[in-house]
Design a protein around this nucleic acid. Structure first.
Lengths: 157, 157
DNA sequence: TTATACTTTACCAATTCACTAAAGTTTTAT
DNA sequence: ATAAAACTTTAGTGAATTGGTAAAGTATAA
């Protein structure tokens, strides 16, 4: 399904942001420094920069420049799907070329074209239905973390 | 999801076999020549050979040697899933490394590991549930073809 | 015994991937 | 102002993978 390390890193970035920039109550989301994201998630800073550009172009993150700048989510985590994230950083997501092109096969009609269309739709569905909030909350639950607290204070046994 | 042209060709091959070697009633499945498959599906013969080796190792096809040799399905088309086909020709199917390895992320625990496991399972499901027979029948229905007749005689308008 | 077909191993050019590098630009704290 | 910290943009590159060729060999039926 063409998912590269950009998707792998992008999900880490978005989940990190969802967790560490979550507004405590009704305040604005906190700004997270890119160096903190890179350190926590083990992403080379220069490579993270490139991924951030794509996430920003898709309005999935907002950047704040300047001395105390950083990133925050572009909109609420429950309005961002996993598909949004992957589509933002990949150049095209499809299991095979057959899905990406209209005229994919042998004349007059490709025996597998319809099958690939169905496969693609079925594989895409869970990505469209799962939100960043769901993924992050599930992780936080399993690791018994306080959303606003950070890792150190409240790791489960 | 790591699907290469081997999967693309493999599905064509298996659907071609399912269609052209379907036993008319209770007879044995017909043998289909590799050159016919290659021609109909537009696959370089030498490359088709390599794919056939993998399909044969997985018992998805049987080969018959000799002058009037060729291939037939290894078992009934309704007992072959699309996942079987792709798993046979790919070296490993997973959206990202996170799924393939136990220790994928940053210590002490990867924030995205569980999410990727869920994603993988959800994307795999439709492939496991769809059989070659379903895919082929659907195509034959839409193109109004007689399973035993071949393309020429009965193409729909 | 020969034509036809399948099998196996080896090889390679082109592309893509994942990342590095370096020279900027922008903004804020002081 | 001005320096520090952070983000932006454009190039480049080594390694790995992909998609396909090539060639020599093996097996079987007519």
């Amino acid at each position: 399904m063409n998912l590269t390390s950009k998707s792998r890193y992008a999900l880490k970035i978005m989940m990190d942001l969802a967790h560490y920039s979550a507004p405590p109550s009704d305040q604005a989301a906190a700004i997270v420094r890119r160096s903190d994201i890179a350190r926590r998630q083990g992403i080379p800073t220069e490579y993270l920069d490139q991924i951030m550009i794509r996430l920003r172009s898709a309005n999935l993150v907002e950047s704040v420049r300047g001395r105390s700048g950083g990133y925050r989510l572009g909109r609420a985590a429950d309005r961002i799907t996993l598909w949004d994230v992957f589509a933002a950083v990949e150049d095209g997501i499809y299991p095979v070329e057959c899905v990406a092109t209209e005229n994919c096969g042998f004349a007059p009609s490709c025996i597998t074209h319809d099958a690939w269309s169905s496969i693609f739709a079925a594989m895409r569905e869970p990505l469209v239905k799962t939100t960043l909030a769901e993924a992050t909350d599930k992780w936080a639950d399993e690791h018994r973390m306080c959303p606003a607290g950070g890792i150190r204070e409240c790791r489960g046994s």
